[in-house]
Amino acid sequence: MLGGALALTALAAWWQRRRDGAVRGADDARGRTTTAVLEGLGVRPGEADLTVVQFSTAFCGPCRATRARLQQLQATRPGLAHLDVDAESHLDAVRELDVRRTPTLFYLDRAGTLLGRSSGAPRPDELTALVEAHVPAPGAREGRDV
């Protein structure tokens, strides 16, 4: 029994490490639905180069670290927008978007195209790469204010 519990723990830890934070793409139809639901929540992708929508709950440890990481990235990349959604008060959207864990993040470009989604704390290098790929560094575009 103890052996079984240890094996199950190892399996769960492995699965979590493999999946956590990985950015997954979406097909076009699914992406459009997702964007529509997010826009219904007040998300305006047209106002930033990259909009990251984060679903959080109060009982979520990594949500705070994720929020902090995104705010840190915002400091150097003003074209990055970050929006925090309290999952519990938007359960309809949670169901429609099939959000199962927190934090779940959705990445939208300026055209409102869904670039991908991820669950769990994002992987720092992957997140940075995504931001750098879509948000020009300040100076590249003068006089922009977000």
């Binding site: 979590q16 709950t57 009982f59 979520c60 440890g61 519990e88 949670v94 199962r100 927190t102």
Partner: peptide, 17 residues
């Protein structure tokens, strides 16, 4: 203990929704 993952917290939204 080993990974810092809070299983109960992960399941919270699943139960809630």
């Amino acid at each position: 203990a080993a990974t810092g993952l809070c299983l109960g917290c992960e399941l919270y939204l699943t139960v809630r929704r």
